[in-house]
Design a protein around this nucleic acid. Sequence first.
RNA 1: GCCGAUGUAGCUCAGGGGUAGAGCGCUUCCUUGGUAAGGAAGAGGUCAUGGGUUCAAUUCCCAUCAUUGGCUCCA
Length: 650
Amino acid sequence: MIKITLPDNSVREYEEAISGYDIAKNISQSLAKEVLAITVNGEIWDLQRLITTDSKIKLHKWDDEEGKHAFWHSSAHLMAEALEALYPGIKLGIGPSIENGFYYDVDLVDGRVISDTDFPKIEAKMKELAQQKNEYRRSEISKKDALDFFTKKGDEYKLELINDLEDGTITLYKQGNFTDLCRGPHLPDTGYIKAVKILNVAGAYWRGDEKRKQLTRVYGITFPKQKMLEEHLVLLEEAKKRDHRRIGKELELFTFSQRVGQGLPLWLPKGAQLRERLENFLKKIQKLYGYQQVITPHIGLKELWVTSGHYEKYGKDSFQPISTPAEGEEFLLKPMNCPHHCEIYKHKQHSYKDLPVRYAEFGTVYRYEQSGELHGLTRVRGFTQDDAHIFCRPDQLKDEFKKVMDIISIIFNALDFQNFTAQVSLRDPDDKTKYIGSDENWEKSENAILEAVKEKNLNYVVEYGEAAFYGPKLDFMVKDALGRQWQLGTIQVDYNLPERFELEYIGADNQKHRPVMIHRAPFGSMERFVAVLIEHTAGKFPLWLTPDQVVILPISEKYNDYAKKVLNFLNNCDIRTLIDDRNEKIGKKIRDNEMKRIPYLLIVGEKEFENETVSVRVQGDGDKGSMNMNEFADLITNEVKAQTENYKIN
RNA sequence: GCCGAUGUAGCUCAGGGGUAGAGCGCUUCCUUGGUAAGGAAGAGGUCAUGGGUUCAAUUCCCAUCAUUGGCUCCA
């Protein structure tokens, strides 16, 4: 007798070993049709694998990550089978499921390539194989047999993977004529896969190592129903419409010029306005938190970064030094602001009573990003950090850290960024040589971050090996419209620079002590933040931030004079107002200005002129009736106030 | 930097060995209107740049530059 406990704690008893599929069938036919995988005592299994002992189980359908994982992982095998059939002699790397679909890394050998014109062929082959409803059969063999098998097959990549596995049994999965090294789980058969789309193809280094061979990575996605694929493709289209590069062009926020250089954004008037408003907002908050603005030059002597240790680490990958013609002094375009700020700290002696000292600067920095890495405003070669450096006593570190977290949460709340991940980046425990500074300091700062995060009740993940070379950090990560993750805000603890720049303060004991430094940037960079904000809002910025708040649309040219009167009135109330006095019908003006995402549209014609009113339309929400100018001005002013004053200093 | 793709009017894109097209935008004219596209005419392109093949290249080939999807990197 085998007892099977379901997630609701109900128990089912079976005479003999039973598969997950049969349990599902036993519960209901419709469940059996939908179930894709099963968790047995915390381990994910194939549905057909027999359960022989009392177990706790959970059945996974498409809605579960586990269900999708099994589905896409099985699809990766199906694609590999298709690729083997279409490209004989192909060698296989790895083929996992990912957040949206799956990929397989393959070595095509003989210099063959796959390009997007080949996709239909691959899709057709996959569908053909899927229709054969070949079972995914699991088998367990010894490591030696596995090595023999893949030696015969000539798959050197699989051999390398097997050699790295521990001795013991190794599982293989076979469907049709295709056998792959795999932990599973998989679908019962290929017939579950009804809709197939190959998405793109890319180069990917074997095992992520740029010194090793570059394989061809083929990305795809599959679904149990054709309709789901169609919906997914619509979603991808929608996401593309939110792309900041597209909206940035549409709304004339920023541009790039080949003649200026790649990765060097040019902020157009409207984008500059938006950015300036964000900067002023942060400045206001920082002032309340005791920050002082400083200004430093865009270049500095190379020695500055030799001292900081950055030159050794990044020097050869940066823009190369520029030198003075007569003396041959070497300068670097500054890749970060910290050394300049350290020198500001050093301009005078500090007492322990004066700390913490907080220097802030919207500092523009230049980094030589690899050409293939550039991407819209999110990855550029010249950008402005909303940088600040806090110099504090070691006993103030945790508190200061928490205050920075407060500033970040004010910013994120004001801009309605709820969907972020906090990532604590610590040292790689296996390779401490990548880092500089003493073990003791690293431990102190790693603990300070972890404690601060816990005390602030932040949801966070810990990533080992992601720390900066000089210290651990706390990063705030958000996703863009296409699901790519970007780092926005960051807080970093640094014992290293104070050491290297010999920063000091005089303690209560009248002795010299070393301060601790915190680097922090709530936005991260203005460029990246604005990019993510564009995608987050689809270009519909909050009223306080948007470049143009109101547009006045006269019904005909007869009312242009009245419209101008309204325009002057609103502009005098500090409301950013435009007028659309083109010789167009009102429907056309409404459409055009709706598409410019201007929050309020005011329609003025005969009626409004007579009654000294305006007819109000809210962007995306239609006609709101009429009101007089004062009422409307109050409406706008109050809305802006509510948006910008909704925070407190703790 | 590496692998793949792309580059045609201000924007979005079609085309194709015989020196170019649409829609939107722009200019002018008609129209003066009531809540998401009124009508007409016109201007605008060395088809990214440089080579090569050809009687002829924007089209085919090569290189460069830029953009783009990934990989690696990200102080």
